[in-house]
Write a protein that binds this DNA or RNA. Structure first.
Length: 276
DNA sequence: AAGTCTGTCAACCGCATTCAA
DNA sequence: GTTGAATGCGGTTGACAGACT
């Protein structure tokens, strides 16, 4: 007995998504939230399978996604997480906000894997390759400090020390190459906060954070404004929609003129319009 | 200019896992 | 405990763009 297809193959479109399809999906998710994906195509008037809709949303349309290549520090994080977790891309992605498993997997296969091989490191085991690599390869690589000194640090829990050591070397040698100062600062703060890093690596409970000390841009909804310590959903949604750039340029600002978001808040349906 | 090669990444496929009946 | 539907996950594919010949 074979497994039933996730959707009716007849009439289901495949291939790249069009701007119109994106618009429909965004409109539907913003209006209804993420419910049962199987029902989404029908309800959103899309000739796609539910799986495809979920993938499109999680990998491309989601408003909290970062864009662009992973920077130096994110790469280091991916390498270390991969040493600990292996090819469990979703677990790795879960530790890195704004990145998808697909994105990390692609970046690993197209960039990091090659870097590691060039450095003489087996990307699967994170151990030095048996065959001696040329010294030129080892020294010329700008990423020679990306990896822990030996495989033991990948499993011995010395990650923090390795990161501090490696990141400081990288900083001193490649400071001019640092493009994302914000991320660097974030990574440094993570490296200095062992509890938080342990949490990110899935080894510990989330550390308590005093949000009253957070400094956020003026337009970011403050967690302290809310009686429960959380910004309201519509505040966050507004802010995310202000910040994110999911294809607005792809289908033109006018496309959003008729988009309305309905938000359930304490049982009372609220509505707000998105102004392009 | 045309053809070929290579790298990148969005999307698909099929198996695994979860969960409700 | 069993079954089947829904969803999640990781490997793979294929279209596309840019580099190279």
């Amino acid at each position: 007995m074979g497994r039933q297809p996730c959707c009716d193959k007849l009439g289901v479109k495949k291939g790249p998504w069009t701007a119109e399809e994106d618009k429909k999906l965004i409109n539907f998710i913003l209006t209804n939230g993420q419910c049962c994906w199987r029902a989404v195509p029908k309800l959103a008037d899309l000739r796609r399978c539910g799986k495809s809709c979920r993938l499109r949303w999680t990998n491309y349309l989601r408003p909290d996604l970062k864009r662009g290549l992973l920077n130096e520090y994110e790469e280091q994080l991916v390498i270390d997480l991969h040493a600990r977790l292996g090819n469990r891309w979703s677990k790795i992605a879960a530790k890195m906000s704004g990145r998808t498993d697909n994105e990390i997997k692609n970046h690993w296969n197209t960039h990091i894997k090659k870097k590691l091989l060039k450095m003489g490191i087996d990307p699967v085991t994170h151990k030095p390759l048996q065959k001696e690599t040329k010294a030129d390869d080892m020294t010329s690589s700008s990423t020679k400090n990306l990896m822990p000194q030996d495989s033991s640090s990948a499993t011995s829990g010395n990650t923090l020390e390795s990161y501090e050591e490696n990141s400081s070397l990288t900083r001193s040698e490649n400071s001019l190459a640092i493009q994302d100062q914000e991320t660097e600062a974030l990574f440094e703060s993570l490296s200095e906060d062992e509890k938080l890093l342990s949490y990110l690596l899935g080894e510990d409970e989330p550390p308590l954070v005093n949000t009253s000390t957070w400094e956020l841009p003026n337009n970011v909804p403050s967690f302290n404004d809310h009686p429960n310590g959380f910004a309201s959903w519509d505040d966050c949604a507004t802010w995310l929609l202000d910040c994110q750039d999911f294809g607005v340029h792809d289908f033109g600002l006018d496309s959003f003129d008729d988009v309305e978001i309905s938000i359930l808040d304490d049982g009372n349906k609220q509505s707000m319009s998105i102004l392009a």
